[in-house]
Simulated assay, not measured.
Amino acid sequence: MNALVAGFSLSLSLILAIGAQNAFVLKQGLKKHHVFMVCGICALSDAILIVAGVAGFGALIASFPAIESIASLGGAAFLIAYGSRSLISAFTAEHALDPAGDATASAWKTALACLAFTWLNPHVYLDTLVLIGSISTQYSDKLMFTAGAVAASLTFFFSLGYGARLLTPIFQQPRAWKMLDGLIALIMYAIAASLLLRVLDWGPG
């Protein structure tokens, strides 16, 4: 039971930080746009990475640091592009929150964007493969530790995606959408900058 609680607590503490992936899930939840699919992709991706980390693949990343650099460059490029799109939307688009959701949007494009936010983010690999993987060695019951970590990810993403609709009254106002788009753009640019600085070895760690 201790391993289960430890895995859940560690995973939840890592995932709670505001980031590009969480901002994307929040926005999809507010739009009621393929919410189950988006939450499922995020949770399943986390589960795969957590299991891999506990199984020992974190050592592979540590042995070949070039993998992290390549992922950082790809992630930064994607975040800059998506951030720019959000910034343009904040200044030009006329937003309206449709209570029925956005049924005409492409599930395929949404899924690809969700996968990109997850798999092009080097911080995800650091948190799951390296950090969770290394801490799991302290517990003899790795199965329970892994189950706790996966459960935390599942709980968080579905709570964020479906809990976002509680903010619907606020986002009935177009101004609120513009502010959200602006905030998302800032988050994307900040994370992209941190990734580039890490590649150039100007940042911490």
Rank of each mutant, 00 (worst) to 15 (best):
W108K: 15
L154W: 13
S11I: 02
G148A: 09
R175E: 10
I191S: 01
P204W: 11
C39N: 08
F157H: 12
V199Q: 04
V35S: 01
A23W: 04
G74D: 06
A77F: 13
Q138T: 10
Q172F: 12
V130M: 13
G205P: 09
I191W: 07
S13E: 09
A193H: 06
M188L: 09
G56N: 10
W119K: 06
G19Q: 03
I67Q: 04
G163Y: 09
K27L: 05
I170S: 05
Y125D: 04
L166T: 07
F157K: 12
L167D: 04
I80D: 01
A62P: 00
P65V: 04
I67N: 02
S45H: 05
P99S: 08
Q173Y: 13
S140H: 11
G163S: 08
L97V: 03
A113M: 14
A105H: 06
I170A: 11
N22Q: 05
T168W: 15
S9E: 05
F145T: 06
L200I: 13
L180E: 05
S84V: 07
Y125L: 09
H34A: 12
S84L: 14
G74S: 10
V150T: 11
L143T: 11
V25Q: 03
S69A: 12
K142T: 11
A81Q: 12
I187R: 01
F157P: 02
D181F: 05
A107Q: 13
N22E: 02
G133M: 10
A190M: 05
L30R: 03
F78N: 01
G182S: 04
V130K: 12
F117Q: 03
G56S: 11
Y162Q: 00
I132S: 07
M188V: 01
I132R: 03
F8A: 04
A103Q: 15
